[in-house]
C-alpha cells in the first residue's frame, strides 16, 4: 500500500527530528501542554501520546530536568534542558546540519 508505506517512511524520518526539536525547544522552560503548543505554532505537530513518553525518556537519559510547580492554581510539571542535554543538543544539531547539507547536495 503506497499510503501505508509513506506513513511508515514519514514516521522513520520524524522519529529522530522530534527528539532534536523537543530538546531545542526546551532551552526555555515549558510544561507539556505549552511545549506542544509552541512546537505546533512553529510547524511541528506532535501528539500527546508521543510527546509525554518522549519527555520521560529524555529525562531518564539525563538530558532534561523537571519539577512540579503550581501555576494558574494547578500543579504542572515543568521541563528544561539539563547541562548534559545542552552538550548533547549541540552535537545533535551539528550532526543534523551536516546531514541536512549532505542531503541538500544530493537532492
Amino acid at each position: 500500500m503506497p499510503s501505508d508505506l509513506i506513513d511508515k517512511l514519514r514516521l522513520e524520518l520524524r522519529r529522530g527530528t522530534l527528539t532534536v526539536a523537543v530538546l531545542a525547544q526546551l532551552r526555555a522552560e515549558h510544561y507539556g501542554y505549552t511545549l506542544r503548543k509552541a512546537l505546533a505554532d512553529l510547524g511541528l505537530e506532535i501528539d500527546e501520546g508521543t510527546l509525554y513518553p518522549l519527555l520521560r525518556r529524555l529525562e531518564t537519559q539525563g538530558l532534561l530536568t523537571s519539577e512540579w510547580r503550581e501555576e494558574d492554581k494547578r500543579e504542572k510539571r515543568f521541563y528544561k534542558l539539563s547541562a548534559e542535554g545542552r552538550t548533547i543538543l549541540k552535537q545533535l544539531l551539528d550532526e543534523w546540519r551536516a546531514l541536512n547539507g549532505a542531503l541538500d547536495n544530493i537532492v
Binding site: Y31, G32, Y33, E48, Y52, R56, R74, E75, K76, R77
Partner: peptide, 17 residues
Amino acid sequence: KQRDDIAAELRESISSA
C-alpha cells in the same frame, strides 16, 4: 512507581486542552 506521576501529568495536560 510511575503510575501516579504520569497520570497526574496527563490529567493536567487534558485539563489544559
